[in-house]
Amino acid sequence: MDPTIIIFLALMIGMMWFVTSRGKKQAAAQRDMLAKTVVPGASVMTIGGFFGRVVDIDGDVVTLESPSGVETIWLKSAIKEVKEPPFAVVDEDEGVTGASAVVPDDASSLDPGAGTGTQFRPGGPEVDGSGRLTRDDESGEPGATPRA
């Protein structure tokens, strides 16, 4: 066997060992840092995207409190990072930043047939402006005459 091939193989094996051991060391350091920062009172985000405040830690179990005050139990390994929830910035004069749509408090101002030329009667078939049936209730097919 040629000595250059043996040297090349030894270098490749050494590089693979170096890269994998370095990655493991970095992951272990990151886990240790997370374990030090996850303390009662800290805001955290889980791997599922749930934001909560740490209430209690008991071994591998962490109790998180949601912004609404509900407490849930999580595995410590489910905590991704210590992070504040991304709430919208509220300006007292303008309200929530970026919010421009006006939403009514109730549905009384909503008209389901507005702009479509159709009328909707709860419990009855759909009828166009001239009183003709636009869709048969059972089959979904257009009908020739309205039903009574």
Rank of each mutant, 00 (worst) to 15 (best):
I73V: 12
K24M: 06
F50M: 09
S21L: 14
D32I: 05
L64D: 04
A10S: 12
I13H: 05
E71G: 01
F50Q: 09
G23Y: 07
G23E: 09
A101Y: 07
K25A: 15
I73D: 07
M15H: 06
D58H: 07
M12A: 14
L9Q: 03
F8S: 13
G49L: 04
M12N: 08
G98K: 05
G52K: 00
M12K: 08
V90S: 02
A10D: 03
R22N: 13
I57F: 07
V96A: 04
Q26H: 10
F18W: 15
G41D: 06
V70P: 01
F50A: 09
G98R: 04
S21E: 14
A99R: 10
L11Q: 06
V89S: 13
A42I: 08
F50K: 13
A27E: 12
I57Q: 02
I7M: 11
A101P: 00
V96I: 04
I7V: 11
L34H: 04
K36I: 02
K80G: 07
D56V: 09
G95I: 03
D32A: 13
V90P: 02
T72Y: 08
V19F: 11
A78R: 09
V89K: 15
R53L: 09
S21N: 14
T37A: 15
T72W: 03
A27K: 06
I73H: 05
T20H: 08
D91L: 04
G23Q: 15
K36Q: 15
P67M: 05
D60N: 14
R31S: 15
V82M: 01
V96Y: 01
G41Y: 08
S77P: 01
R53F: 02
T46C: 00
F87Y: 12
E71S: 03
P67R: 05
D93W: 00
G98A: 03
E65D: 06
S77R: 12
E65W: 11
V90C: 00
S21T: 15
I47R: 14
A28W: 06
A99K: 04
A88M: 02
A78H: 00
V55G: 01
E71K: 13
